[in-house]
Every structure is written in structure tokens, then in C-alpha cells.
């Protein structure tokens, strides 16, 4: 007998004579306390994310690349990892030569194995998109894919994320429903609610444990 069948048999014996409990999931319990007027969503998101050291700017859909250049300049960073095959990556690429920025644009265009050392130690910042955010918990939703791989939002000490103001949902349940997550998920869906942190020593909060030390969110107001 395999471990699998032993375990399943034991569990089935334990359930003998019982019937499955009904699915009485009451969605109101996870939605009603977490609803906001559309104009309050940004306020809620900002207050929660800023409370955990996230830097947030509201910018226009056209001018964000300038803001990115400014953020890098203020920190005197020498490079920025971007995803050229995405719409926002393309936009950034087109803008960059005229930005006057001394930071070099890097592209995540080859498998991690080919440049692991560089990715781990030499990339200063990254820019990724998001597929939305959750006001209730102050969380960004990232949907990594071939063009914008998983490690982009993890390895660089500074992560800049773009968020469309219109894509902020009230709560996680609403987000799942709207994007129909149960119909298909990416290999690694992520909720990100601030820069990496730890309180493992004396419960003293320290930022930049293993992931980004800084998270900057640019909320794009629709033109």
C-alpha cells in the first residue's frame, strides 16, 4: 500500500457515516465592512501603504516617466530594470533618451540563469506594472509573466510600481471576482503591501529584510 492510499483510506474511514458540510460561505462578511466610495479608495490605500513606509505619488498617465527619472535622480541610482515588451516598458524606453537621466535602462530579456549575479547584486531599481490594488488592505496585485518576470519586483532594493487609479478595488473578494481568478491564475500571483520588512528581533520593525528596501507606487490618474 502506498502512503497516498493509506492516508486517504484512514481519512475516509474517519468520515464514515458523515456527510459533507454545506457550502454556506457568506460573502457579505468579507465585503460589507470593506466598501468605500470611489473617491475614498485612494485615500484608504495611501494611508495603509504609507503607514508601512511606502512612498506614493499621484501622477498623470502621461507624465509618470518623468517622475520615475526624478525618483532615480533623487537617490542617485545608476540603473533601472524595466520590461520593454509591456506597454509601460515601451513608454519608458521611448522617453528615457530625452529624460536626461544618467541611470541606465536594463531589460529583463533573458533567463535569470544568464545574469543571476548581476540581477542579485547590481540592479538598483525596477519598474513594474500592476493589475490593480486592494483598498481594504493596501495591497498591489502583481501578475508576473514572460515579459515582466517574478524576480523584478523582488531583487532590486527599490521597486517602483505603476497603478491605474481606476483599477483599485474595495477588497480582495471583489478583486478575485472582477478578474475571475478562479478561471486561471499565473504561475505566481502576488499581493504586495509595502517594502520588505521584519520584526524578528525584539519586534522592532526594520525595512529591507530580503526584498526591496523601498517601494514607490505611482498612481496614474486617468486623463
Amino acid at each position: 500500500m502506498s502512503a497516498r492510499s493509506n492516508i486517504l483510506n484512514k481519512l475516509r474511514t474517519g468520515l464514515a457515516g458523515s456527510i459533507p458540510r454545506p457550502d454556506d460561505f457568506d460573502e457579505r462578511l468579507v465585503t460589507e465592512p470593506w466598501q468605500y466610495a470611489p473617491e475614498d479608495r485612494i485615500t484608504r490605500l495611501r494611508s495603509l501603504m504609507e503607514a508601512v513606509h511606502t512612498e506614493i505619488h499621484q501622477v498623470s498617465s502621461d507624465s509618470w516617466p518623468e517622475k520615475v527619472a526624478g525618483i532615480l535622480a533623487a537617490r542617485n541610482l545608476s540603473n533601472l530594470l524595466h520590461a520593454p515588451a509591456t506597454a509601460h516598458g515601451q513608454k519608458l524606453g521611448e522617453y528615457w533618451p530625452q529624460s536626461g537621466s544618467s541611470a541606465q535602462l536594463l531589460a529583463y530579456d533573458r533567463p535569470v540563469e544568464e545574469w543571476k549575479e548581476e540581477l542579485f547584486w547590481q540592479v538598483d531599481a525596477s519598474l513594474t506594472g500592476t493589475v490593480g490594488a486592494i483598498a481594504a488592505t493596501g495591497s498591489l496585485v502583481l501578475w508576473p509573466d514572460r515579459h515582466e518576470p517574478r524576480l523584478m519586483s523582488l531583487l532590486p532594493p527599490l521597486h517602483i510600481a505603476l497603478l491605474r487609479a481606476s483599477e483599485i478595488e474595495d477588497n480582495l473578494y471583489a478583486m478575485m471576482q472582477r478578474q475571475n481568478w478562479s478561471a486561471g491564475l499565473p504561475t505566481n500571483l502576488l499581493l504586495v503591501s509595502g517594502p520588505s520588512k521584519t520584526a524578528d528581533i525584539e519586534q522592532v520593525l526594520a525595512y529591507g529584510a530580503h526584498g526591496p528596501k523601498e517601494l514607490v507606487v505611482l498612481i496614474l490618474e486617468d486623463a
Binding site: T187, L189, L190, L191, S193, G211
Partner: peptide, 10 residues
């Protein structure tokens, strides 16, 4: 309200 990362691996 939530942890910094919620990592969903599929």
C-alpha cells in the same frame, strides 16, 4: 491587515 507579501504559486 495583511502581510507584506501574499505569494500564490500555481
Amino acid at each position: 491587515p495583511i502581510t507584506t507579501y501574499v505569494n500564490m504559486i500555481s
